[in-house]
């Protein structure tokens, strides 16, 4: 890891450039531009013209998640965070798109906490987010939920709540 030299540079009026060469001799460059977009260039060893992808900050974070190996399924994302200071506490945060079976039900009806131990911390509905939904919160078509818990609890949530 240490021999892969990551160079960062400030370019006036453009933004910050990060560049590194892989062991196989390919080059990856990423530019965080002042206009807010993020551009990623990859240059294969021996090639002259790089190919580029332009991303919004959200897309770039998504790519970052994929690259760190945290993603489980293409449309559902999961991150596990380890807090070494708290006796190596590991918490998993996972997103799910709710299935048809639980549309119209509340968090209380489903007894999510009692059955699985996981907690619904946020619901994304039509481009806005509801943080800490109340027990009386009713799920609607198209909701995506963000669930937090230990990885066993998340697995339980997936097998018991998401199939109901």
């Amino acid at each position: 890891m240490s021999d892969m030299a990551l160079r960062s540079k400030n370019l006036p009026g453009i933004g910050t450039k990060y560049e590194f060469k892989t062991d196989k001799g390919d080059t990856v460059a990423i530019f965080f531009t002042t206009t807010g977009v993020i551009q990623m260039y990859t240059l294969q060893k021996g090639c002259k013209t790089p190919s580029a992808a332009e991303m919004t900050p959200g897309e770039a974070r998504r790519l970052g998640n994929i690259l760190t190996g945290a993603i489980i399924e293409a449309d559902q994302e999961s991150v596990e965070i380890a807090f070494s200071a708290l006796a190596d506490l590991r918490v998993t945060i996972h997103t799910f798109y709710i299935p048809e079976a639980i549309i119209g039900k509340t968090i209380e009806d489903l007894q999510i906490r009692a059955k699985t131990g996981a907690t619904v911390v946020a619901v994304s509905r039509h481009d806005h987010n509801i943080i800490n939904p109340a027990p009386s919160f009713v799920f609607e078509v198209g909701d995506a939920v963000l669930v937090i818990g230990e990885s066993d609890q998340i697995n339980k949530f997936e097998s018991e709540i998401m199939v109901e």
Binding site: P12, F31, T33, A52
Partner: peptide
Amino acid sequence: VLTSLIENRKLMMKEAELIIW
């Protein structure tokens, strides 16, 4: 000049940095 370097995705070419400076 700077906007066109970004929009035409030319930031990685070797001349880009010199042009910026």
